[in-house]
Design a binder for these strands. Sequence first.
DNA 1: CTATACTGTTACCTTGCGGTTACCTCTACT
DNA 2: AGTAGAGGTAACCGCAAGGTAACAGTATAG
Lengths: 223, 223
Amino acid sequence: MIILLVEDDTVLATHSINFLAQEGIEVDYASTVKQAQAISEQQQYDAIVLDINLPDGDGLSLAKLWQGTRDEPILFLSARDKLDDKLKAFSLGALDYLTKPFALAELAVRIKLLANKTLVKKSTTFKLDSLSVDLQAKIITRGQRVIILSPQQWLLLSLLIEHYPNPVNKSCIINHIWPDEDTNNNMYKSLLTRLRTNLSRDEEVPLLHTLKKQGLVLRVANA
Amino acid sequence: MIILLVEDDTVLATHSINFLAQEGIEVDYASTVKQAQAISEQQQYDAIVLDINLPDGDGLSLAKLWQGTRDEPILFLSARDKLDDKLKAFSLGALDYLTKPFALAELAVRIKLLANKTLVKKSTTFKLDSLSVDLQAKIITRGQRVIILSPQQWLLLSLLIEHYPNPVNKSCIINHIWPDEDTNNNMYKSLLTRLRTNLSRDEEVPLLHTLKKQGLVLRVANA
DNA sequence: CTATACTGTTACCTTGCGGTTACCTCTACT
DNA sequence: AGTAGAGGTAACCGCAAGGTAACAGTATAG
C-alpha cells in the first residue's frame, strides 16, 4: 500500500512516515503544492493525505485541480477545525477530514479504510451476465431483448441492484415494496415469479436466487 | 435515503433528526440497544449512526453483534475521544467516528458520504485452506466448488469464523442457534455432521474439529 | 366502452430443512 | 471386562417455505 502525503510541517511528516511504515504503509512525501504535483504525476496511490495549509497554496485548491483527473481517495489534515473548511473539503470530493492534533494510530486506521474501499463510480448502468439495466433511464435489456417491468418489479430489481452482490432480506423487501399495507406472503411470491419470468426466458441463465431464510440475491447461476 | 440513529441524548437526537430531515435524510430513531435491535430488524438502512454510551449497553457491542449479519456502513458518535475507543470501533468495522460536540452539518455530510460513496466495501472474505467464505455476499467456495448451506449451517459457520481461531463452546453454539427451543443433543449432532459433509467432500482436508470438553473449532490440522 | 395491464388472491405442487431415531466407535471409570 | 457417556454417521419423513399457474378485481388507456 502506498500513499502520498503532502504536509509542510517536517517534524509531523517525519513522525507520520515512520509510524505509517510500521503499519506497512509506504509514503511518498511532498512539502509543497509544486512538489506534490511533480511527484504525483507518475504514480497512482492507494490514498492521498493533504494538509490544507501549505506554503505555496492550499490543499483544497490542489484537490480541486485533481478533481476529475485523479481518482484516489483524499483525506484532509488541518489545524483549523472551522466548519466551512470541512464542508468545502467534502464538497471537493474529500472522503475524510482529520483535525490536528491527531493520533498517528487514527490516521493509519483511516488511511487503511480509504485504501480498502473501492470508490463508487456512479455508473448508471448495471450489468450482470447478459442483463443490462440503466438505472436512470429505466431501460432493461437481456441480450437483444428489451424487458419491460411493472412498477413493483422495477422497485424490487433496483433494490437488489442497490445491494448487489449482497442478498436482501425478505422482510426488508416486503417493507420496501409494501411500506404500509398488511404483509401477505403470497404477494411476495407472485411478484418474485413475475420478475423471474421477465428476467430469464427460455434458455437464459437464471439470475434471481433465494437463499432460504436469508434473502434474495442477484447472481449468475452457481455450479 | 434512510438511516438508523441510536442515541440516548434526546435533545441531541431531536436536533439531529430535524436537521437531517432538511437534508433529505430520513431517520429511524432508537434510544437504547434493545430498541435499536427491535426497530432495525425488518429494515435495511443506508447508514447507521451509533452512540457509544447507551443506557443499556454500548454501541460497540451492538456493532459486534451486527458484524456479519448487517452490511450497513456504521458511523460512531462519542463524547469520549479516547484513542482506544476509536481504534476498537474501527476494528469492529466502523467506517467513521465523530467526537462530540460536532456540527450537524458535518454529521450530515459524513452520513451522505457513507451512504453514497462506499457501496463497495472491502470484501470481508474468510479463508482457510481451500475454503473461502464471503460473509457479506454469503458465498462459500471450496476450491472450485460452490457450497450452499442451510440457514442453521450458515449460522454455525459464521459463528465459528467470528471466533476463529478459537474454539467455541458447545453450549454457546446451542444457545446461539436454538435460542428459544428446548435443546436436544441430537439436533446438535446432526447439524454438525451436515456442516462437515458440506465443507469437506471426497479427499478434501477436514476443517471442523471438536476438541473434547472444549468445543468446536475451525482449523486445518486435526492433531 | 372495450382492451390491456397490473396486482392481489387462491389452489396446488415440489423441495429440502431439520428433528428424530437407530446404531456405531471411542474413551474413562469402577 | 462391563458400563456409561460423549461424539459421529446414516436414514427416515413431516411439514413449512418456496415456486407456479390461473383467476378476479381494479385501474388505465385509447
